[in-house]
Design a binder for these strands. Structure first.
Lengths: 209, 209
DNA sequence: CATGTTATCTAAGCACCGTCCAGATTGGAC
DNA sequence: GTCCAATCTGGACGGTGCTTAGATAACATG
């Protein structure tokens, strides 16, 4: 007695169409709406309108789904950083700009940023791709661009690590909203970020200016 | 038929004696033996030889138990840092020493360090006590000791934040064991840590030397 | 010493979680 | 049209955090 006519117009026409895509989207929606604590596999399946076991045909386990979400986070960070680099006037401004952009990304996407690093913490490793062509490379390239010619590869790598550590540390501290009075004193969060990065003075050694 | 004589010699003589203490100890034991993922309330109760509901008479919920564990972590970090400061020869060495000690603490107690910051992440705030008399103060005092006289309070606070961020960031990166080749190149992890801190160069502005 | 109060602990149960399995459904290849 | 393989569902298992009701035992009071 169920219609055999045009079931194609239903909201779920296919088996599900592209469920892995839908699951990752659902996860990101939950993440923004309710935060990382509410991100259970079952909640994601519910949000996608599918049974709790369905995700297992597309992801080995919950961790692998979260990795897919984290991966999109890293790519979003990539584009944010490269936009920031492109819009900066000179090499020096590019350095500050990329650092501030990194921290702003973490501030504006706190749940996503947390998933990105939680995945890494569980695996005891940052994503390989990030080191080979992603955000980490952009930091290294930016440092390299404004470095003096005699800087060795080791120094360049150390500077990149130092910058990355400082950025990540600052990003986490920002989420612990305890510097607010200081921020006001300095005239807003952006000014605060720039001030901290200045105090890191991490690039003095390489600065062409 | 159970003996009414000398039940006092049993391993559990009292109701439980000091269960909150026993629970925190059990939690730390599990943490070292099996890592943060295995740290469930029920596992802690099991390890302490007590029913799953017993902890609720001593802690409001699981988070509060973890906070107690984290608190002990912060205190342990406090003593490690002050020992490090006390054993350093001059002010400059004290700066490097406290930074390296911080990262070493995180490396040597990875599970505990993670619980410490996971608690903070859940509460969106670092522990108050840390800012008022704990590790954070030690960093600020150490910077203050070697600073030039004209340095303002704001600059001192910014430098402390910068140092803390760099230390925490480095501590997390170290746990992602991806700098190992570089470490070997530089002759071991300690040399690596010192090199990174040098590249941060964060105290150039204040350095008396 | 008997009594009652209070803190502590247990047993059982709730809703939820991640995960697996048997079976139903479906799209596409032959 | 038939079969196959991929996909999805319903149901189950053990685990989790947490609550409630009731047992137990230390302690203060008479």
């Amino acid at each position: 007695m169920r219609p055999m006519t045009i079931p194609a117009t239903e909201s779920r026409p296919y088996h599900h169409g592209d469920l892995s895509r839908a699951l990752v989207d659902a996860a990101r929606r939950i993440l923004e709406r309710e935060g990382p604590a509410a991100l259970s596999l079952r909640a994601v399946a519910r949000e996608a309108g599918v049974s709790p076991a369905a995700p297992y045909h597309h992801f080995k386990d919950k961790g692998q789904l979260l990795e897919a979400v984290a991966h999109e986070g890293w790519m979003a960070l990539d584009t944010a950083l490269s936009q920031s680099r492109a819009s900066a006037r000179d090499a020096r401004e590019r350095m500050t700009s990329i650092g501030v952009t990194y921290v702003q990304f973490a501030r504006d996407n706190p749940a996503l940023y947390r998933v990105m690093y939680d995945c890494s913490r569980d695996k005891d490793a940052l994503p390989e791709q990030m080191k080979e062509e992603g955000a980490y490379c952009q930091v290294r390239d930016t440092i390299s661009e404004q470095s003096l010619d005699g800087v060795s590869d080791i120094d360049l790598e150390l500077a990149t690590i130092a910058a990355w550590c400082a950025g990540h540390g600052l990003a986490e501290m920002i989420s612990f909203k305890q510097f607010d009075p200081l921020k006001e004193l300095l005239g807003g969060e952006d000014a605060f970020l720039r001030a901290v990065f200045e105090h890191l003075g991490m690039f003095a050694k390489y600065d062409r200016g």
